[in-house]
Design a protein around this nucleic acid. Structure first.
Lengths: 212, 212
DNA sequence: TAGATTGTTAATCGATTAACAATC
DNA sequence: TAGATTGTTAATCGATTAACAATC
């Protein structure tokens, strides 16, 4: 019987990892939950609670060994192995993601890009080759790709996601502003900066209202 | 005395807006909470609850008028006015955001981009001119910019955000993978796709574990 | 009127916060 | 040993779900 682990906890684990790497770079070998939490502006209670879902990683009265905790979190998140990824849609956003350096150290390896546009095909951006969509099945098999990032316009996103499913992809990061309709066994995450930006306009407008 | 409105509700309001626009395009003038909710794969209870924070927008026994509800949500989110935005960092991601068409119809208008790289300065990408950072104060004033999007590398993000604050910016959408340290009166939203991607690796790894 | 659907209140669920015993 | 800090349990807080009276 599993305790249910909040998705927020998993996301915070990524933040902890990043902070720990920073502390290591600053030659800090050991941190307390308070130091780590202060750095990330969350409560130390929450940090310890989050970690407690997965085990006992600290020493009472001492704190956490940075390199050790890094290893444990990487293990939990699956970052101690390589994940092959493809990017479908080779516009500005697709290319930005292809060239993003933050992925590599996390075992995330972008193996291929795809685009309908024949002018983009068979070229390489940032060392990543762009293929036509007819190669999807082939390349996904060959490169052992398990995760797909969708950055195509919303009109094409549905067809693309259906195709990806048929090719065996079960984890998708979707940047198209549309709710994809996929079977239950797909792990789907939407990233929608338009909504985030609108949250800012809402809050700014709220401030104005209060000033009256 | 305000009821506290969950941030999730605000984000969902954006989704409702998008869905309503879709229904209008499909020549649907009226929707029930159930239809709208099914379309977005949430519960109709939640949709009505979300709307109830702001008023009574429907007709009992009938449903919601699409164009009317669109107007009300735009009003709530502040999208019935123009918001001027700048993008700091004119790499792939910055340019992707500059050219993103989804913003324009929401009253969000990207007025300028900034970059340290002299080779990028004084050129235009997608009709948006790139300035040197010394022009920050000047352009923000002149163009009445109230929201900034940060897409610079994490090493530069802190200095940039401090500068933006000095220039009067109080709403920031931050894509740099670092926790910015800004005064309380700044509305700050982080977008971190590395974390989202890692959530996928976590879930995939979890599946593998369960299969043993 | 009868059927449909909203808006709101109450119940449930889940996540965060706080407190503290255990222990390095 | 005394001080510091973890890990866990209990209390609080807040969001989601469900139920239903009101009413078009």
């Amino acid at each position: 019987m599993y305790k249910k682990i909040p998705e927020e906890t998993i996301i915070r684990l990524s933040y902890y990892l990043r902070a720990l790497i920073y502390f290591i770079e600053e030659n800090k070998k050991v941190v307390s939950s308070r130091q780590l939490a202060d750095f990330l502006k969350i409560s130390h209670h929450q940090l310890r609670k989050d970690l407690s879902y997965f085990g006992h990683f600290g020493k009472k009265g001492v704190g956490y060994s940075c390199p050790e905790l890094i290893d444990r979190i990487k293990e939990i998140l699956g970052l101690n192995q390589q994940w092959n990824v493809c990017v479908v849609g080779s516009g500005n956003l697709g290319r930005a993601l292809s060239s993003y350096k933050g992925f590599r150290d996390q075992g995330i390896c972008i193996k291929a890009a795809f685009d309908v546009d024949k002018n983009k095909q068979n070229k390489s951006y940032n060392g990543i080759k762009v293929y036509g969509l007819e190669k999807l099945q082939n390349i996904i098999k060959k490169e052992n790709i398990r995760i797909a990032i969708i950055t195509v316009p919303k009109e094409n996103a549905k067809v693309i996601s259906d195709n990806l499913y048929k090719c065996g992809i079960r984890a998708i990061l979707n940047f198209a502003p549309i709710k994809l309709d996929l079977p239950q066994d797909v792990i789907l995450k939407d990233v929608d900066f338009s909504c985030q930006l609108t949250y800012l306009t809402y809050r700014l407008k709220l401030l104005e209202r209060k000033n009256f």
